[in-house]
Design a protein around this nucleic acid. Sequence first.
RNA 1: GGCCCCAUCGUCUAGUGGCCUAGGACGUCGGCCUCUCAAGCCGAAAACAGGGAUUCGAAUUCCCUUGGGGUCACCA
Length: 495
Amino acid sequence: MTVRVRFAPSPTGHPHIGNIRTVIFNWLYARQNHGKFILRIEDTDQTRYVPNAVQVITDSLRWLGLDWDEGPDVGGPYGPYVQSQRLALYKEKAEELIERGWAYRCNCTPERLERVREAQRARGLPPMYDGHCRELAPDAISPDEPHVIRLKIPREGQTVVHDLLKGDIAFENALIDDQVLLKSDGYPTYHLAVVVDDHMMDITHIIRADEWLPSTPKHVLIYQAFEWEAPTFVHVPLVMGDDGKKLSKRHGAASVDDFRKQGYVAEAVFNFLTLLGWAPGEGEEQEIFSREELIEHFDLHHINLAPAVFAYDKLDWMNGVYIRAMSEEALLERLIPFWQEAGLIPAPVPAEMMETLRILVPLVQERLKRLQDVVELTDFIFNDIETASGEALLGKNMTPEQSLEALKAAHTLLSKTLSFDAETLEPQMRQLAEDLGLKTGQLFTIIRVAVSNKKVAPPLFGSIEALGRQTTLKRIARAEEALVHYIEQKHAASA
RNA sequence: GGCCCCAUCGUCUAGUGGCCUAGGACGUCGGCCUCUCAAGCCGAAAACAGGGAUUCGAAUUCCCUUGGGGUCACCA
């Protein structure tokens, strides 16, 4: 039997990173078994529909490399793959359930339902439908008048859910609500649509988050009512924020798009998410896995049963690992959009600027946790800086006069040297430090602050090379002025 | 609150009765390297929620307690 799994999002916004983890489990399972991964849009709630959502969802999936074999855009033998285009089917199936004695029409008003629930809550009972229309004569409510169709849950006995990971879970039927299957607007609820579609589309494994577990007995009952064989249920744990609550926007980035914009690379996010709640086991200590390795090693049975906290710190580390593993050319390509987005370089990139960018890439590569970090790290290369204060320009354990002298000496050297690249600059500057009786750190720090006005910056000589001689000398000259002013003020104050 | 799920370092996890004085990774702390910051290398602190039971032997099996989470719509 061919494995067929699905991702069935409702188009209500950006896919959440926690949901995506579950999608990855589905995708991995499909690819590993040479099965099919199906995308189905569950747009049965007209009130929550967001116009662009389907596009946003497919963009996110594509970015992560999660391709689908059947879906709304690519089609397939089980279409249509959008539930709002299958309304007649659900209606027919709901009616069939009435005929089979497993469902009934109900015309209770929302107001009445709310009153009933309120009364139940007041008595400390769980709010449930009170069965008002359940035992009405079959023709008591006309199919033509506004009504819903409810599932007729047996009043006694238990319904057992077979879960691949958790085993058999028994639910008391008496505690299960008579779920609405078909709404008064003619749309199905999730419970009807998901069962009908999963069956009609020959889904073999329903891999979904734990939050669905409480409604699974309803689905099992619907399968029984139709005399259909239920697929294998696999409920996987939720992803939590670092406070132990369900992951949400409060915890920082939450949607796939947030991560992309911050400069997380898709391969790292994919790797990280797969390892969130799953590990290869058997003493395997590897953490960095290619997509192919993941497909090979993934095993549903090794999914952890406990909810997993989303560790941003570890993602940052892993993202850095992936960034460092890239070729300089590949990293350059990924960095350009971030420089452009920040307005540091134009689009398209002028040919002569590419040379500067190529100098910068190896300088920043091992310093980036996220691609976005390149902006703050290199903005001084592209934008003019504010000249540092005299105080900031002091070398460690050095007087203003000594600092100024060192800066002037560097100025002279940098204006004379024949070529202006890091390789020729560095030995000369080291020699200069020695000649001045300074430690390299003392001299280099003064120059770094002079040209970047940053205490933390990429390696000095590469930065200077990227900056070019003219800009470098101009900034050093301005720093000298700042130091001169600083010295004059000190003298004035002490006089 | 009812029902359901879950429980190894701060976090992600390895561990399926003896190999565990519990291993790895992130993070943290210390050191080395070093022009800053990183990266890299070395090292340290850090966990089987508690109580019973089964067993010659329990992180591993069972029960209870505690704790955490999820869910109770004409939302998915």
